[in-house]
Amino acid sequence: MSTAPDTSVLTTGPSADERAARAPWALTAPALMLFVGILVIPLAMTVMLSFHDWGQYKGIEPVFILKNWHEIATDPYYAEMFWRTFRVALLATLITAVFGAPEAYILNRMSGPWKSFFLLVILGPLLISVVARTLGWALLFGGNNGLVNKFLMSLGLIGSPLPFMFTETGMVVALAHVMMPFMVLSVWAALQRLDPQIENAALSLGASSFTIIRRIVLPQIMPGVLSGAIIVFSLSASAFATPAIIGGRRLKVAATLAYDEFLNTLNWPLGAAVAVLLLVALVLIVVGSNALIERRYAEVFR
């Protein structure tokens, strides 16, 4: 008698397997539904929207035409605007890498209380709105009334205000500033994985500090720098607030253009096309470079 349940458990093995196979789906269902509901469906609708027609007086017409895509592909205005978007994002990424990686390294070498203090200084800005941080730059460099411009002009060092507002340089600098914490955090995480004795090991073999950084530390934190770069690049390319404040209506990037089409011109289909193109380009760039990085470092970092 007592053995009967045991054998039944054994013979019902396959159904237990089936149940085990269903469990992951059942468990992820709530999150999956949320994901589909708030991301996939609106995204699909945006893609659909980009194929609709629009006219000043007729509004949106739910038809399937390639008008918007044709316009983006042929009008050099859009090409220039997309190039600007990625150029600005790339330069901002380079700046964060060049300054953020050494910053993280120095931070990591600091001792106890200083380390936590400066970590707070670096990460603190994340708690402040991007708008506030970008407005800071505008206050310092904005035209004749900018604090720095006023000061430098009163000293006679410059004759006219430094061009910052409505320039690509201004946009790059402000974006690099806003994105810096992400790069520092990413490199910091890579540094945490470093064996604390590894620099001593290189030192005992006769390496100079410069050699240690170049040949031992840098190659090991490179994946951190690159993943930080991917984060910063995609956030910069799709950033809205900073380009909107620095570039305004004069110097548009993809995100601000899409915004204008949606809310000012009310040409939603064209705005949708710009947004979709930005998304597709970003996904391609991020997935592509991620694959490259993984292939390059597969042997070493598994």
Binding site: D195, Q197, I198, N200, A201, A202, L203, S204, L205, G206, A207, S208, R215, I216, P219, Q220, V300, F301
Partner: peptide
């Protein structure tokens, strides 16, 4: 760096981005 001593650390502290030969060669 100038003491010319050989050290084996408890954690080995090998350079993970270098092969065995590159480690020894360093």
């Amino acid at each position: 760096a100038k003491r010319g001593l050989g050290i084996v650390f408890q954690s080995y502290a090998l350079f993970p981005h270098m092969t065995a030969a590159e480690n020894v060669s360093f």
